[in-house]
């Protein structure tokens, strides 16, 4: 049994990718908790799709892809706000317009440049965690530490703001700053996760573990902690499944996370579908 766990670790690429998956599992669960409680799951999807042209342009100009992706994510959020604030178009429609446009632009750019640059569109869409380099692990670790420190130090303010925006503003908390700060954390987290799961599946790591936890516990910090546990378990199991059964890593991680969600959905002591049925039956 122990052998099964140790065997993949003799390869340097597996050590790096497993470590990467764990780090990404942690920050996605923490930052995704804020997305979930604010009902902003769609925004996570919008930002992750919007970073694609940034990745492509970063490749063409040979700058750090993290920077390119982050700038593209930022521009897309600004575009969404401009459309929403200056027309009758509602926020969800604005998101739909902007993120699909950015996504299309990204795919076009990458397809045009991929032949001479020896890059693969699929790696952007679905991640390429097995090909992760030492410097990419280092960058991700750096972003993750920053994100976790910010959440730790501003936890009480962010809790107040995400629960009751008017109340937070009335006591003089800088709500615009908190809002921008949260958006930046979300952007950074998505960018840091791209290598692991790609732009399409990153939403799953952001939303599924916190949702799983939300059905089990009742406080935001507990949602984060249980979410991190779910995220890390999904990352590790997904990587091992992918190693032994030759499955694509990103989708394997997502499928494990989804399985854990289904278990929570059915068997959560307080909220579960099946536990609820039995509670009802025995109380009669």
């Amino acid at each position: 049994m122990l052998n099964v766990l140790i065997e993949p670790l003799q390869y340097g690429f597996m050590q790096r990718s497993l470590f990467m998956a764990i780090v990404v599992g942690i920050i996605c669960a923490v930052v995704g908790s804020y997305l979930m409680v604010q009902r902003l799951a769609l925004l996570g999807d919008a930002i992750s799709h919007s970073v694609l042209p940034g990745l492509a342009i970063a490749f063409i100009l040979d700058i750090n892809i993290f920077i390119g992706a982050f700038i593209a994510g930022l521009i897309s959020t600004v575009c969404i706000n401009i459309i929403r604030n200056n027309s009758k178009i509602k926020e969800d429609a604005a998101m739909g317009i902007v993120f699909s446009a950015f996504f299309a632009l990204g795919i076009t750019l990458i397809t045009v440049v991929q032949k001479e640059n020896k890059i693969d569109l699929n790696h952007f869409l679905f991640g390429n965690i097995l090909g992760v380099s030492f410097s990419e692990v280092r960058d991700t670790l750096f972003i993750a530490s920053f994100v976790l420190l910010i959440v730790f130090f501003f936890y009480k303010e962010l809790l107040f703001y995400t629960f009751d925006k008017l109340g937070a503003e009335s006591v003089g908390l800088p709500v615009n700053l908190l809002d921008t700060g949260l958006m930046i954390l979300i952007g950074l987290t998505i960018v840091a996760s791209l290598k692991a799961v790609g732009v399409i599946l990153v939403l799953s790591l952001l939303i599924t573990p916190p949702s799983t936890a939300y059905l089990l516990v009742n406080r935001l910090n507990q949602v984060m902690l249980v979410g991190v546990f779910v995220g890390v378990i999904s990352s590790i199991s997904g990587m091992y499944l992918s190693y032994y059964f030759n499955l694509p890593s990103g989708p394997a991680i997502v499928l494990v996370a989804t399985t854990l969600f289904i278990l929570s959905f059915l068997f959560s002591p307080s909220q579960g579908l099946i536990t609820g049925y039995f509670r009802l039956k025995f109380n009669q």
Partner: peptide, 9 residues
């Protein structure tokens, strides 16, 4: 104006 399903005690 409050989301009462928010995970808070």
């Amino acid at each position: 104006q409050i989301d009462w399903t928010y995970p808070a005690t």
